[in-house]
Each structure stands twice: as structure tokens, then as C-alpha cells.
Design a protein around this nucleic acid. Structure first.
Lengths: 336, 336
DNA sequence: AAGACAATTGTTAACGTGTGCACAATATGC
DNA sequence: GCATATTGTGCACACGTTAACAATTGTCTT
């Protein structure tokens, strides 16, 4: 079988306690014996049995990264950036367990023994039962992407509303008055936020909108395609369309091209997210950069602080979005 | 603290041994006491301590999913599909730990105690030291995406070479004779496979190619953009370009558009992978579907078989690619 | 020289589970 | 009615680690 501290103890002629202490750099042990024990351990290629250690220390060395779902509605670039961001921060100290909240029928098996800390990348209010469950169990927790009010939870968000606002303002300043919106997936918080920002900008600039210019999407390219088709069916078409994410913007571009229209000459398009491929679309997509990786990293850092016992109080951290101006939005000719 | 089998034992008036057996459905225990114990356990909201169980059973309930890297060269849709595919199969029984091989300086801490099984999504020969290390440690292992010869390893691959071959054949049958290739990231096995398929098709159809029509890429959109720029710099340009993946095809499309050329009228484009957004590009990208999710699922299933002790012998499973004909490849006018 | 005290190491128990073996209770066979 | 299976349960230990407490040695103080 594998090497244990008792094996090392025998070889070193000491007790296994001494070995344990030496390997953990306890100040109780003399430098001399530490040295001796460590070399023996290295020679034997010793690795501690984490299960045994976990049992007595009541730590798991696991961090859970939970998505609302890893099936639909999660765009791949979003998923990738989140995992990468979190992994970057925690991988030295922890194992990263990735799963979907909807993988669980009950949250029975999720407890302190399994997870030293949990990061929830939350998309919808459906996650609340999960989140409050974790909270009750007193597991260090950080919730990303969706604001949880009235609870002592560390919260990291992008200011989607403000991002959408700035985007729409840019459209307006470019002379557009007939604006449309393709909304995100129903029930997702981000859908609402971006929509709110969109409308707030309209209100603040005294711009009206007809019901026909508000269409639903599902955050995937196909739904963006269909939504744009819908917008183009009417005789009166918008001059600029705000897509609630880039994936849908890609679909919208296709619908526009099929209609024989040109972007941005005939119609302008604004995205949201700034996916990796967005600068390479033709025309390059003007969009709002959502700092997904930054949010994830920031969240992971906060979680580590929490785990390491730093007294962090509830905090809602907003990370700025940034307008990425490219080629898909054109300036309206001012008629006078 | 949390409930243990001893607590249950006290309440039931039996020994903890009986409780353990009852909960594990041992045939030694009468149905009657089983029933009693299970209801008590349910009432107390008991969850077994996996660390303790792992310690004595020498199982971790973890499955490791290792990518060569989760930084560069891994496209997001690829990453997403792999995680999703594997998770689908294993999430009921195991926790899924995701990490990058390049996160580790040595493979010391990777052993049977931590992982009941490991799936490697391998991109390059650099992974070999890791793979052989796992093999030595006798951990159930499945390697996806890259063929490992001369070792008793379960292997699941897509036939990239054949896929590329079919793609190029399609280009040729469409009348193209001046073909170019944008290669993938150097050192990646898939790069070589696709390149091989490309050239084999040329050879079999007696088509020559000039050195200028072979350019390197890195699998990301930017490199595709640059590569295509390069191809278009010469006075003599190809009539069709085989891009080693869809991400690069997106970049290539942009370069072509900037040159004022039209796809497929002036130049035809072939991709590889069939990303989610590929059908929604303008024009929709003709490409080769690589069954990433299927490979991942198949691999995960094989791994479970291995873990459950089914005597599975080394096997190399090829999963078919499929040509997805869309709009980006045009028929050459036959001059006579 | 005896006691106090610091430095280092050892003894023993604990974490929560599973299991070989012994044992009790009951059923079966003659 | 006794010996023998059969069935159900408990005792004691093991897994590999950490930690409270005890023990040993050496040094210093008075």
C-alpha cells in the first residue's frame, strides 16, 4: 500500500506524532529532526492521506462551483471564463468541483464535510432555496452575478443595468430614435437588469417605444435569429437593436443579412457580454464588456478570505462594465 | 455537530455496527430493524461522512477531468461541451473535479486516494508524462481526443483526419483546385490530424498546393484573421480555404470581408468543429461536426465501467465526424 | 543540590465509518 | 429433547491523521 507517517516514523526511529509535527512544520520539533524526517518522506515519495486528515481536521480541501444549470441558458464562453477565473485563484490550495444546482434533487449531501466553501454563479431566483440552504449550513459562501438582499452574503455583480444604460445612451447619441430590444432568457436576473437599463435610458431621453419593438429571446443564437426575424416582419422597422447578449446578436446579424440589409448602414446592432469572437464578426460587434473573469476571480478571492477566517462582512461588490465601440452601430443622418 | 451513526444507534437502541449495515442494505440485518433505522436516519437528516467512509473504503467518490490546460488553446465551446458531457454521466455517483494538467508542478498529490478515476482530455504529447504517471499509479483512466499507442489505455477519439479528408473532398468536388489551409495550434495532435486529412485528399485527387497556401494558426479567431490576411496578401489567392477550426474561420471571414470579397462567391470557406454559433454566421459556415459531447459521454461511461470493475480491455473507439453543408462553400464555375 | 522551567519527544485518544469474528436467539432435523 | 443450522446483533479493531496531555532530558536559579 502507500506510505504513511508510521512508515516514516519507523525509519526515522521516532513516533508517528513527531513525523506529523515535522511535516507540518510545528515549532515543537527541532530543526535537526525536521530535516531528517523530511528527507525520508521525500525519499519514500510520501503523500498525506487527505481523507484521514479531513476526518480529523474537518476540512475537505474542496471548493464547489455551482452553476444554476450546466445545460441550457449558460453560454459556453461564460461558463469557460468562470471556471477559468475561479480555478486560477483556488487551484493551488483546493480541488475545484464543478456542478449544476439542477443536478441535485435535494441538497442533503452538500455540507461542510464536503465543501470548505462554495461559489454560486447564480442566474435566477430559482437558486434561492439552494443559497439559503448553504447559508443555514454555515458554509462559507459567495454568490456571483445576482444580488441577494436581506442576507449576510458576499455578493459580486456586474452592473448590467448601468452597462445597458450606457449602451443605449450611445445608440441615442448616435442619432437613433427607433430602438428595439431583444430580451434575454425569461426568469434570469440579468435579463431584467439589462432590460431595466434599456428602458431607463429611453425614459431619460424622452424616447418612446412601441410594443412591437420589444421581443423575447433565450440568450442563444437561434432565439436571436428568430427575434430579429420578428422585428423585421413589420413594415416599420427599428434603426437600432439592443441585443441582450452577443450570442443573440450573432443570430440577429444573420436575420438581417438574409433580409438583404446591411449593418450598420440600414440597421445598427448592439450586443452585451463581449465574447471572444465578437471583435471578429463582420462588422465587428459594438457591445458591452461584462467582466466575467474578473467577477469570478474577485469572488474566489473573497471566498478564500472567508475560509481563512478573515472577518469579512456582507458586501456587495459591483464590477464595472465597459462599452466596446466597434463597427456595428452607425450614426444616423440628422434630418432637419 | 452533525449526526453520526452512533447517534442513530443510541436512538434505535442498537449498536452503530447495525446502523452501518442497515443503511448499506446489508443482508445480515432484518427488514424490520432496517426500516426502523432508516426512518430515524431520515428524521435526523443524517448524511454519511464521506471522509470517514473514504478512509476505510479507500475510495474518494471523486472523478478528475483534466485538460491539457484551461488557459490557452482550449476553445470555450469545446470546454463547455466536455464538462457538460462528462458531468451528465457521472454526477449522480461522483463529484467532478475539473483542472488543468499545467496547474500542477508535480503529480505527487494525484493518487488513488483522491481520484477513483481520471479522464484526460488530451491535446498534446506534453500530456504523456501525466498520463503515464496515472497509469503507473493504477488509477482507472480514459484518454480522450488523442491516441495513446503502446499502452493499455482506453482511448476515445474523433476521426479528425477522415473528417478533414471528407471536407476537402467536398471542396474539390465543388470544383475548387486552388486550396489553402489554415493550420491549428502547433504541437496539438488535432492540428496534425486535420492537416494530414487535408493533404491526403489533395494527393488522392492529384491536386498540387504551393507553400504560400499553407499558413499556421493558433485555433483562436485572431490567428485565423491574421492567417487569412496573409493568404490574401499575394496576388494569387486560393478559391477555397480549409480552416482547422470554426473559431479561426470566424476570424478568416472578417479578413475576407475587409478585403471587400464575398463568401462564397469570391472565396469559399470550410471550418471544423461545428460550434453552436456556426449555423448563424453570415453566410452559415460549412464545417465538420466533431462529436465532442458524444466523445465525452462515451469516455465517462467507459470510465465508470472501469471503476466498477468490469474487465474492459484496451480499446480505441473512433467516433465519426460529419460534414455539415451550409452556405460558405460555393461551386466553382467550370471553365472549358 | 533541589526545584523550576524550557525544549523536545512519546502515549494515547479521537475523528466516523466498515468488517471479521464471536455470540445469542431462534428455527430445523433427528 | 438435544444437536445443529440459520439468522440477527454486538464487540473490537482498523483506516491515517492530528492533538491534548504526559514524560523525559537538560539547563538555570537559588
Amino acid at each position: 500500500m502507500s506510505v504513511t507517517i508510521k512508515d516514516i516514523a519507523k525509519l526515522a526511529g521516532v513516533s508517528h506524532t513527531t513525523v506529523s509535527r515535522a511535516l507540518n512544520n510545528s515549532s515543537l520539533i527541532s530543526e535537526e529532526t525536521k530535516e531528517k524526517i523530511k528527507t525520508i518522506a521525500a525519499e519514500l515519495n510520501y503523500t498525506p492521506n487527505y481523507n484521514a486528515r479531513s476526518l480529523v481536521l474537518d476540512r475537505s480541501y474542496n471548493i464547489g462551483l455551482f452553476f444554476s444549470t450546466i445545460h441550457e441558458g449558460t453560454s459556453s464562453s461564460f461558463f469557460y471564463e468562470v471556471v477559468r477565473g475561479v480555478n486560477d485563484i483556488v487551484h493551488k490550495e483546493f480541488k475545484l468541483i464543478v456542478s449544476g444546482i439542477d443536478d441535485y434533487v435535494d441538497f442533503h449531501s452538500i455540507n461542510r464535510k464536503h465543501f470548505d466553501g462554495i461559489i454560486v454563479m447564480s442566474q435566477s431566483t430559482k437558486d434561492d432555496s439552494f443559497i439559503y440552504n448553504i447559508l443555514e449550513k454555515n458554509i462559507p459562501l459567495v454568490v456571483l452575478n445576482r444580488e441577494i438582499q436581506d442576507a449576510p452574503i458576499m455578493n459580486i455583480l456586474s452592473d448590467d443595468r448601468n452597462g445597458a444604460y450606457k449602451a443605449v445612451e450611445y445608440l441615442i447619441h448616435s442619432g437613433h430614435k427607433k430602438l428595439a430590444i431583444i430580451e434575454g432568457k425569461k426568469g434570469f436576473k440579468s435579463t431584467q437588469e439589462r432590460k431595466d437599463g434599456f428602458f431607463q435610458a429611453l425614459i431619460d431621453h424622452n424616447i418612446t417605444i412601441t410594443k412591437d419593438f420589444i421581443v423575447e429571446g433565450k440568450y442563444d443564437s437561434e432565439s436571436g435569429y428568430k427575434a430579429m426575424k420578428e422585428l423585421l416582419r413589420h413594415s416599420d422597422t427599428p434603426t437600432a437593436v439592443f441585443c441582450s447578449n452577443d450570442d443573440m446578436a450573432v443570430g440577429a446579424m444573420k436575420a438581417i443579412a438574409e433580409q438583404g440589409l446591411k449593418i450598420p448602414d440600414d440597421i445598427s446592432l448592439m450586443g452585451f457580454d463581449d465574447n471572444v469572437f465578437s471583435p471578429f464578426l463582420s462588422p465587428a460587434l459594438t457591445t458591452v464588456k461584462r467582466p466575467v473573469e474578473e467577477i469570478s476571480k474577485e469572488g474566489a478571492k473573497k471566498l478564500l478570505d472567508l475560509i481563512h477566517g478573515e472577518q469579512v462582512t456582507k458586501e456587495i461588490l459591483h464590477i464595472n462594465t465597459r462599452l466596446q465601440i466597434r463597427e456595428s452601430v452607425g450614426r444616423m443622418k440628422v434630418k432637419d
